[in-house]
Design a binder for these strands. Structure first.
Lengths: 255, 255
DNA sequence: CGGGGTAAGTTGTCTGACAAATACTACGAG
DNA sequence: CTCGTAGTATTTGTCAGACAACTTACCCCG
């Protein structure tokens, strides 16, 4: 395919994901307000120029994400739930979380280095122990105040022949650099979290007293083939944000 | 509408959910091991006795839940991802979490009372301020050691004419009582959490020093019609469990 | 004015077919 | 013998139309 300046979105994958994005867009922009009923499936399918099967594919995904609710014989409705700002279900970065809270996101003390992977890191990233990893450490600020200390760890081979990339990661989102410069799209991640107290090194970097309350988040991100790409450790100030999670079930015990 | 609180086991739902349950069962039982490829859609559809469209509906749901991965032209594979024990994505109760960790779940200091709803509670549960709510407070133990203090708040009218139900809630899971005795199935919930320090009352109930690390979780559960049913406050010992979350995306966002 | 039945509307399911992408195989060049 | 390449088979994605199951609203009747 000849290279165009901006490949709108034509080439990517199944057509149903385009439909999904179009519908989420309409919901986000308020074109489809919460609680309202969507047009019927045949009508909406014709309007979007796809078959009803493809539309249903997209609707099923949206229902799984909690954005719409389908009722047999009645219609499909936009969920009127609290469209929570930073839901942990979707894999946002720290920058997005800060901006979603209406504050200005910044970075301090950004630095990176290479080191041999520890046994734990090698296991998470599917490397041989001792292979080099790139560690990117940043202190993220909201309106100038340090709120998160993050350490992102990824295989060094990703940036081996691209010397400038590590510097880019200090300035921009790592997800963004991975996708735009390396063509690696993060598909999903698994996060584990626990309350901890700030030890002396973390306290110094975040400029808080030792023993302060933090939420520690360990996360591993995978691409669409379940290959581990990056492992992250984050320490969040306890009162910086509230995290929310949309939980499914247990209302499916009937069978 | 005829008053049918909840028909026994009349398979009210769509057939695709039965297919979904059957497939999750096979994955959970190990019949379909992680990483293996499922039979092709036509083959699996005939085996399950449904059309391919219905099977795809179920597969779509499973993909959204992260249990399988579909690859165009290749096949559908059981996700070999971390089938984490207590993932926050699914709405388990404290009892399930304790048992999943291989410990014995118990309850201490269970008690309940009625009180007028506070403004915040009334808003969450869609009540008039001042209407009575039932508050169920329990200390949950794992192998005899207190690990969670929980307060569940629900409209008093649910148990107004069933005096024994509140006592049942001290012994069994509230979800279970809601579903079996009241015909109310919790469909989903939204949880918010934050690290906190134990104040004096919480510390006394959990038998820990004041200032100990806790994870506070506020949650509101809804039925299938987005009606708020119960509001919960839980205080978890920081080192009792690790919570994990499966995070989608960021994949491809248009904007 | 209330109740019940009927009809219209909507989602769920089925059937069959073709398109698009991938995995496998056979073949030929080096 | 090794490697790359083209072709074929397999698998998921999409399409079209039809009918079934279910809900809602309207109209008619008591």
């Amino acid at each position: 395919m000849p290279s165009r300046g901006r490949p709108v979105k034509a080439r990517t994958g199944p057509r149903s994901v385009s439909v999904r994005n179009e519908l989420t867009d309409r919901i986000d922009r308020g074109v489809l307000a919460a609680g309202t009923r969507l047009p019927s499936e045949p009508a909406l399918a014709t309007e979007l120029g796809v078959s009803r099967a493809t539309l249903r594919e997209a609707l099923r995904t949206l229902e799984g994400e909690g954005l719409v609710r389908r009722m047999w014989g009645s219609g499909t409705y936009v969920a009127q739930g609290p469209r929570v700002a930073n839901s942990l279900d979707v894999n946002f970065g720290v920058t997005d979380a800060i901006r979603a809270a209406g504050m200005e996101a910044g970075t301090e003390q950004g630095r990176y280095w290479f080191e041999p992977a520890s046994a734990a890191e090698a296991g998470q990233l599917n490397l041989e122990p001792g292979q080099d990893v790139l560690v990117v450490e940043r202190v993220r600020t909201a309106d100038g105040k340090p709120v998160v200390l993050s350490r992102d760890i990824l295989p060094a081979r990703f940036v081996a022949d691209r010397p400038g990339l590590a510097d880019q990661m200090l300035l921009r989102s790592i997800y963004e650099v991975l996708e735009r410069d390396l063509g690696i799209a993060i598909h999903h991640g698994v996060a584990t979290f626990r309350p901890v107290r700030a030890d002396v090194t973390v306290a110094r970097q975040l400029d808080i007293p030792r023993g302060e309350l933090l939420l520690a988040i360990w996360q591993v991100d995978y691409d669409e083939n379940d290959v581990a790409i990056v492992s992250s450790h984050e320490y969040h100030l306890a009162d910086a944000f509230d995290f929310t999670v949309h939980r499914r079930g247990p209302g499916r015990r009937v069978q």
